[in-house]
């Protein structure tokens, strides 16, 4: 973990209520896909946790949805705005578990952390398949970006207005996969947990006080130990989850 000042380079709306923010700053402490950052916003007491969508040496990409006052304020920030950010938080995904044909399943704003993961898996010579689930056509983002990485990409929408009608689990059955990685709303994670035929890693959300393991605000029980979503997670392995 490091505290760094990042500068907003660009910001654009990429779907309904969804923004992509690119920042420049020191990303040295980000060591794995699926880690997150915790952002101090002017006028708000607690920081806002957002997953790392992509990063390189001095650039960080975040994708977030405006769901409340903090994210709404973020979407109005001008380029050049400085943000105080804690980086390199959480454990992230482990690409060594993937096997040859990993399956990546993202739901809504659970999609972003899978982007850097997909990039890493492709770089390691794996053949990832990606299923992106959204509510409707207005919500869809990053389909082409995942395709550009060389992955097989399927999109599902709940209302059928784009791609396959239904949930990500409806698109899973015909796919042959060696391991799965997922991030999204809890009902989606639970459905995947139930129908998946292999082991996998699931990324969780919880309301956080600190985001770096100090307050016990985000604890959950697993089969082996009590874990803090922010420090021992947000990624948990299927076998340890109690459902």
């Amino acid at each position: 973990m490091k505290q760094e000042i990042f500068v907003i380079k660009s910001q654009e709306k990429i779907a309904k209520d969804v923004f992509k923010m690119v920042l420049s700053g020191n990303t040295d402490d980000i060591t794995a896909s699926g880690q997150f950052v915790n952002i101090k916003l002017d006028g708000f007491y607690l920081r806002r946790p957002i997953s790392v969508c992509d990063y390189d040496k001095n650039e960080l990409t975040l994708i977030y949805k405006t769901v409340g006052e903090g994210t709404a304020a973020m979407s109005g920030y001008e380029n050049g705005t400085e943000l105080d950010i804690l980086t390199g938080l959480g454990n992230g995904y482990d690409t060594s578990l993937s096997g040859e044909k990993p399956l990546l399943l993202g739901g809504g704003v659970g999609v972003p952390p899978l982007y850097n993961l997909c990039k890493k898996l492709v770089a390691e010579g794996k053949k990832p398949t990606v299923i992106l689930g959204f509510n409707g056509a207005d919500d869809v983002f990053y389909e082409n970006e995942f395709k550009a990485l060389g992955a097989d990409v399927y999109v599902t929408t709940v209302d059928g207005s784009y791609g396959i009608k239904g949930f990500v689990t409806d698109a899973m059955s015909d796919i042959d996969y060696s391991f799965f990685y997922t991030c999204g709303p809890e009902p989606m994670l639970k459905a995947i947990y139930k129908v998946s035929k292999t082991s996998g890693q699931l990324s969780f959300e919880e309301r956080m006080g600190c985001g770096f393991g100090a307050c016990m605000g985000c604890s959950c029980k697993t089969k082996y130990a009590n874990k803090r979503i922010c420090k021992d997670g947000p990624v948990l392995i299927k076998e340890e989850i109690i459902w």
Binding site: F44, Y45, E206, R207, M208, G209, M216, G217, C218, S219
Partner: peptide, 19 residues
């Protein structure tokens, strides 16, 4: 183990915890 989650809520100029 403490209380169930959510255990944290933001407030103007502060926070609530129920760890």
């Amino acid at each position: 183990f403490g209380n169930p989650t959510p255990r944290i809520a933001e407030c103007p100029a502060g926070m609530i915890n129920s760890v």
